[in-house]
Design a protein around this nucleic acid. Structure first.
Lengths: 332, 332
DNA sequence: CTGAAAGCGCTAACAA
DNA sequence: TTGTTAGCGCTTTCAG
């Protein structure tokens, strides 16, 4: 806690010049004698002048901040995402304002309002709400928003960067079938209880799963509620070679724990496939086969797209799907 | 992308009143006729007026933002920390500006400069630099800084919220000795290569380890370089019951992987103790005994202390150490 | 090459 | 009860 911040005005007094001259010196503008510039810069250094970004923002109408809104950070996926975004944004000269929704559409709205009041130049959002209202609200905002992962309804109200979830799970399911599994289970615990939330990704994955199972004509079931671990106790594993396709690695790891509890071996008795390829799989009790979620690339792509839209307000919403692939390990 | 934002000035024109009246209506100030207030509020709603935080900040001198600077977010510990901070700050009406240092003192300095230019009201910092310069720099800032985890040198230049690392590891080491281990290894890979960095926590833990080992008079060794996993191949495990005390769970998990590779059983052949109690231990191949790092409480305590110092500039730096304890599981 | 003045959006102080 | 004015720190005119 120390000396007061000095402003351009005081600097002008101290140097005995006008504000215009200070500005020309500090910001490398032309039309100033070299000796004057040096004198000003020397004084600025001496008195520890630091530009006041607030004043500059008010004048320029830009804050060089982008707002990042995700569900939470306890979730490994989001922390990796935010990390990638922050890094990339920093390198492009932008700062991050961070807030979380806790999957609560009300809070999402509140957070977005705060972001707007703070005049961020653009927003990256992992949407929690799915109501039509959210889409309209976002389209009405005076700044660009890019959605990540979850799509918004109605579509087309803002750009989306994510994966082609449906096709990927379709392919993963087919791969499981090719490996000889004759019964397929899909694990997406929150699908049932949070229908009012934006579960675009999970729904797309479910659709991909169902499509593949139907095409192949194999038996299938869906565990879409939070009692999914107990449900596993009821499955007649011996009746058919079963593979469990999970919407995320975390659920897959829980499934693995539970299967071990039940005395079942993986993949001999049951096959398990995850989704995300989170880094902690490295330490897991079973090496999990999974679909890679290129979280870093998605973060960077989202930043890139957002900056484009910030730069050119006439750009129309676009859907960007990144590539991915199955990472084969030991669980399926 | 839609209608322009409306300002108080335009609102005043539209309502046919003055700026002062607009202010009184919008901010619930006294001295305005109720009917006028209602008329203004109705107009504000109709035209979608939203306050401009930038203008307000410039006038008030406060941004209601706090800067959060950590090493990175890939590290689970930091993402949990930031999560706790963000939640708590939000509830107290503050927003988070987030940036990472990547453990680079240069970048740390750059990031802090940006935070200051953006006029955050206070900063929470997990320090990367250790030079005396950083301490002096921080004390010279016109806003309060609270350090988390790592202390700053020279001490006393800002408050610190963390654990009593030395005592905790001392106790953990003693506990290992009581369990019958007769040789003790300490694992802190980065101690050797990053001596120019702020490793206050790790150094304190090393000191605690050495103190306990010396008191008990047992054989001890330290693995302080990045080849620690290879080093494990050289240890004559059969010669004495060995316990490995690790500075963090991540290293402990790597150690566990490597010991398994070497065909050793835990804890029969070797004991392993971690530090942090990160949540992913739940899925790990071995249930790790560890020292809990109360990351949520530390984040909240840091926010609390920072707000106090923001509120009262006369407060003098203080060191806050939170309680912790050993979580006994299967690895030691 | 330099200075003066206006204005970004908001609030606070003072008049009316 | 309402209006007017000045100013937060900075940039951008337009004069000189």
């Amino acid at each position: 806690m120390a000396r007061e911040r000095i402003t351009t005005k005081k600097l002008a007094e101290l140097c005995g010049v006008s504000l215009g001259t200070i500005d020309r010196a500090l910001n490398n503008r032309p039309g100033i004698r070299e000796s004057t510039r040096e004198r000003v810069l020397a004084a600025a250094a001496e008195y520890g002048y630091k530009p006041n970004h607030i004043g500059r923002s008010l004048q320029s109408g830009r804050t060089m901040d982008i707002g990042v809104v995700v569900h939470d950070l306890d979730n490994r996926f989001f922390s990796q995402l935010v990390n990638a975004i922050q890094q990339d944004a920093w390198e492009r000269g932008y700062f991050i304002q961070l807030a979380v929704t806790l999957r609560d559409p009300q809070r999402e709205k509140a957070v977005l309002e705060h972001m707007i009041e703070r005049n961020v130049d653009g927003i990256l959002l992992f949407p929690a709400g799915k109501e039509e209202e959210l889409g309209q609200y976002l389209s009405s905002l005076p700044l660009p928003v890019v959605a990540i992962g979850n799509a918004l309804f109605p579509e087309g109200c803002c750009s989306l960067v994510g994966l082609d979830d449906r096709t990927l799970i379709d392919q993963a399911t087919q791969a499981a079938i090719q490996r000889g599994y004759t019964r397929l289970g899909f694990v997406a615990p929150y699908l049932k209880t949070s229908q009012h939330l934006n579960n675009f990704e999970a729904e797309e994955r479910l659709n991909g799963f169902l499509a593949a199972a139907q095409k192949a004509g194999v038996e299938s079931f869906v565990l879409d509620d939070w009692d999914y671990l107990q449900q596993l106790e009821q499955v007649p594993w011996k009746k058919a070679q079963t593979a469990l396709i999970c919407t995320s690695d975390i659920f897959a790891l829980e499934v693995v724990n539970q299967l071990h509890q039940l005395g079942l071996s993986i993949p001999q008795d049951v096959g398990v496939m995850g989704f995300d390829d989170i880094d902690i799989l490295r330490y897991a009790s079973t090496a999990l086969t999974t679909v890679r979620y290129p979280v870093g690339e998605i973060g960077r792509m989202a930043v890139r797209r957002l900056l484009q839209e910030m730069d050119d307000a006439t750009l129309t919403p676009e859907k960007v799907s990144l590539d991915s692939r199955i990472i084969w390990r030991d669980s399926l």
